[in-house]
Structures are given as structure tokens and as C-alpha cells.
Design a protein around this nucleic acid. Structure first.
Ligand SMILES: [Mn+2]
Ligand SMILES: [Mn+2]
Ligand SMILES: [Zn+2]
Ligand SMILES: [Zn+2]
Lengths: 148, 148
DNA sequence: TTTGCACCTGCATTTTTTTGCAATAAGCAT
DNA sequence: ATGCTTATTGCAAAAAAATGCAGGTGCAAA
């Protein structure tokens, strides 16, 4: 795993240790398509290390989240997803009706982010932003009165 | 509970029923200060109806959330909070270090919301918006290098 | 009022997530 | 290399959340 060198440093520089288990969890998330849940991480890690316990997955995900190497997203349908935070910074819009998630460039947040920082001193984490609402098709269905 | 008449109508108009248990859950959330968790709701409802089961709380909270009468917020420290959605629409900024939550007027979101609707047709739910980041004091501590 | 049906509840159980603990091992300093 | 300190792991057990089911009940239509 040569592409993880700087990540390994990040972990080590924070009084945490880089174990084989932790590296496998980290790689599973990093090299998954994009979003991955706990069971998928567990299944993936098991391929290389079958004895690993699910609690180790939970605990490592918590550590990586704390270090802001990964993000945690609660989907509108209840599923919790993890994602690698690299240089591809973006946010998500999640539809509360069809549960679809679309990816949105974080440039859309620039002005809002600035206002909040200027007026409150609060610094928004764009990497951890998932916003719920109604997507275009679902909104149209609602207006036709097709649903409620 | 005379102040719940329109709420009762909302529930009844959606092919769901208004049971005493549901009304108690609803009132507990509505009349709590602002944010309340599952156990607090359970404790509150028990005062009037001691036999109620915790699973009834979980199920009713899910229904009220689906009807958009209440919002569900995952705090940065893991706690899940519920809140009545009335006319006092607002959003929250949650600090990932000190877990403090500040309330912010939704006017700050107007421009962002419009951009997203114009460009993607996606309609953001302001009532369900809680954004994580670093609050002012925590940001200052970080810059001094006091923490990491 | 009475009836009927779909929704709800309580309870038991299952599933998911968290936690305590003793053994192990990472990483720093000899 | 070797030894120390302390984070981390696997396992078991606890706690939290979700679910199946049989009986109960809201409520709309007679
Ligand atoms: Mn993403
Ligand atoms: Mn609030
Ligand atoms: Zn949708
Ligand atoms: Zn803070």
C-alpha cells in the first residue's frame, strides 16, 4: 500500500498507531467507489484478514472520522455511509423521498460559508455536509398531488 | 391539549391515527424547551402513561419525522435530538470539538438555497439543517496549537 | 350507534452498536 | 536489537434500536 504513506503519517502524528487492521479499514474506504457502509467495510477487510471483529471496524471508523480522514453521512433512509476525504471536496444533497444523493461542488457554499464566518466566527466543514430536501422529480410529483 | 388541534388534523389527514400515545410523544417534543432525546421523551411520556414501551417512542418519532412535524438532528458527539418544527424556522451550527450548538436564522441560507434550486432543481429543507464545523473559541485554540 | 378494516401498541426477540477487559503489539527510547 | 509504555484488538457482554406478531383501537362509513 504505497499510496497511503502520508495517511499513515497523519495517524502516527496524532498519538494513535497504525495497525494492520486500521490500514485495511482505511484502504477499504479509500478504494471503494465512493460511499460505503459498515458492513461493506467489514466484508472488504475480511477478504484480507478474516478474523477481524466488527467492533474493530466501528472503533476504527470513529478514529478516522475524528482525524477527519473520512466523513460520516446519515442518509435520509437511515443508512450511515463513510467516504474518504481527499482533495475532491464536495457536498451532497439527499432526497427525503427517493433517497437519491447528488454531489455538488463546494463552490456553491463559498458565500454562505463566508457570511457565517464573518457574523458568527463559525467555520463550516464542507467535507461533512449532506443536506436533505426534495429532488426535482420528487418535487414535481408532490406538486401534481401524486403522493400526498 | 387544545393547542394541538391542527396537529391532530395533520396526522389524521395522512392515513395515520391519533392515539393517546402518539399525542403524548408529540406534546413532549413540542413542549420541551427545544431539543430532546429519545430517553427524555420516554421519561416525559411515562409521567402521564407509565406503561408505554420504548419501541412506541421510536416508532412514533419516526412517524412524526416522516410527516415533517419534528426534525431529527445527529449531534457531533453522537446524540440524536428531536425538535418541534413550528413557525420558528432556523438551522444549527454544531461544533465538532466542544459539541456546542448555535442557532442561526434561515435568512442566511436564502441565496444558497436559491442557487441550488436554480441549478439543480433541488429544494433544501431548512428545518432539517444542522451543519458541523469549528466554533470561534475552538478555532482559536486550534490556531494557537493548543490542541493538536 | 354499530361495524369493519387498517393502523397501533405492548411484549418478546432479533439485530445493531457500544463497552469492559485481559492479552497483544506499535512505536519510542534506550 | 531490547525493553517500556500505552494504544489497540478480539471476545464476551451490555445497551440501544429495530422488528414480528397477536390483540386492541381509531375512525370513517353505514
Ligand atoms: Mn461523496
Ligand atoms: Mn433548534
Ligand atoms: Zn427524490
Ligand atoms: Zn467549539
Amino acid at each position: 500500500m504505497s499510496c497511503e504513506t502520508d495517511t499513515i503519517e497523519t495517524v502516527r502524528n496524532s498519538d494513535q498507531r497504525m495497525t494492520p487492521q486500521r490500514l485495511l479499514v482505511l484502504s477499504a474506504i479509500r478504494h471503494s467507489g465512493e460511499h460505503i457502509n459498515i458492513n461493506q467495510i467489514h466484508a472488504q477487510v475480511k477478504k484480507a484478514y478474516p478474523i477481524i471483529n466488527i467492533s474493530t471496524i466501528y472503533r476504527n471508523v470513529a478514529v478516522l472520522k475524528e482525524l477527519r480522514l473520512i466523513s460520516e453521512t446519515y442518509k435520509t433512509d437511515g443508512e450511515t455511509l463513510y467516504e474518504w476525504i481527499g482533495d475532491h471536496t464536495h457536498m451532497h444533497m439527499m432526497c427525503r423521498d427517493c433517497n437519491d444523493m447528488i454531489e455538488i461542488d463546494d463552490k456553491y457554499l463559498d458565500s454562505f460559508k463566508k457570511d457565517i464566518r464573518d457574523d458568527f466566527g463559525f467555520n463550516i466543514d464542507i467535507d461533512h455536509l449532506a443536506i436533505s430536501g426534495l429532488c426535482k422529480p420528487c418535487k414535481q410529483l408532490e406538486q401534481v398531488g401524486y403522493d400526498n
